[in-house]
């Protein structure tokens, strides 16, 4: 079991995971994960394919609930509340914990309706309020100037990078506190990737961001903390700079220096 080893405990803990095991039917995917994710920081999850980092990410907003036969054991607390407690309102949880997927997935609707979708289902009806939210969210994701003249055109006509920023804007529109990003730039070209990374940098001040990435340089560039997963276990977790320059574990060192993976 690996405990977080930050020397400066200034960062407040947002998500606290203790002894989490996770199973897809009979297959165990996560083993005894314990981690304290700091608030308003970017935490990167790295590790080779199939190491469980995406599965872990999806336990945090209970997206794994949609897959039949999944089972978990252990505790996940967000703001000191157990999110797997029977009394948990999953709708409220997912409003608070937004998610951006690996492949951008705008709905086949207009740009406006994509952004307004979340606020609408959470009860915002007034057109003026919706317009305001749409503008604010698009502005926040750096897309407003590019799309303000075609808000009512299909979101599917945007470029790949724009679609991904639209998905980020859509997640921001419901005013979350945490943003989960599952390899958000892996399907994008280098320029679009730079834009996403700049955006993450900007959002850091206001949101707790957890980003899964295959790209070690990206983890180094965008994150303050990094967790290294291997075969369903959390091998090492700490400040990104330390983890990359002075890893505690041999395994981590081998991975970050590219000796395997």
């Amino acid at each position: 079991m690996v405990k977080m080893t930050t020397e400066n405990n200034k960062a407040k803990t947002k998500i606290s995971v203790t002894n989490l095991d996770f199973y897809y039917s009979a297959v165990q995917a996560l083993f005894d994960i314990s981690i304290d994710v700091p608030a308003k920081q970017v935490t990167a999850l790295i590790g080779p394919s199939g190491c469980g980092k995406s599965t872990f990410l999806r336990t945090l907003n209970r997206m794994n609930d949609t897959i039949p036969g999944t089972k978990y054991d252990g505790k996940i607390r967000i703001d000191d509340k157990d999110i797997y407690a029977p009394s948990t309102d999953v709708v409220a949880l997912r409003k608070k914990v937004g998610m951006v997927f690996q492949k951008s997935n705008p709905f086949p609707k207009s740009i406006f309706d994509n952004i307004a979708y979340g606020p609408r289902i959470h009860g915002t009806k007034k057109q003026s309020e919706l317009s305001e939210i749409v503008e604010k969210s698009l502005d926040r994701s750096g897309l407003w100037n590019e799309v303000k003249d075609r808000l009512h055109k299909s979101a599917l006509k945007l470029s790949g990078g724009q679609q991904q920023r639209l998905c980020i804007a859509r997640a921001l529109a419901v005013d979350p506190e945490i943003l989960l990003m599952d390899e958000p730039a892996s399907a994008l070209d280098p320029q679009a990737t730079v834009k996403i990374e700049e955006l993450i940098e900007e959002l850091r001040a206001d949101y707790t961001i957890i980003i899964v990435t295959h790209n070690m340089q990206q983890a180094a560039r965008v994150s303050g903390f990094t967790a290294f997963f291997y075969e369903g276990k959390l091998v090492e977790f700490g400040e990104t700079e330390k983890l990359f320059t002075k890893p505690q574990k041999k395994h981590t060192e081998d991975y970050v220096t590219g000796r395997f993976g």
Binding site: N61, M63, T66, V90, V91, A92, L93, R94, K95, G98, M99, F101, K103, N105, P106, F107, P108, Y117, G118, I121, H122, C167, R170, A171, V174
Partner: peptide
Amino acid sequence: PKSYKEGSLALGAS
């Protein structure tokens, strides 16, 4: 596509 449904669920839709 499953991704549409996931996108919606992730926004807190039932």
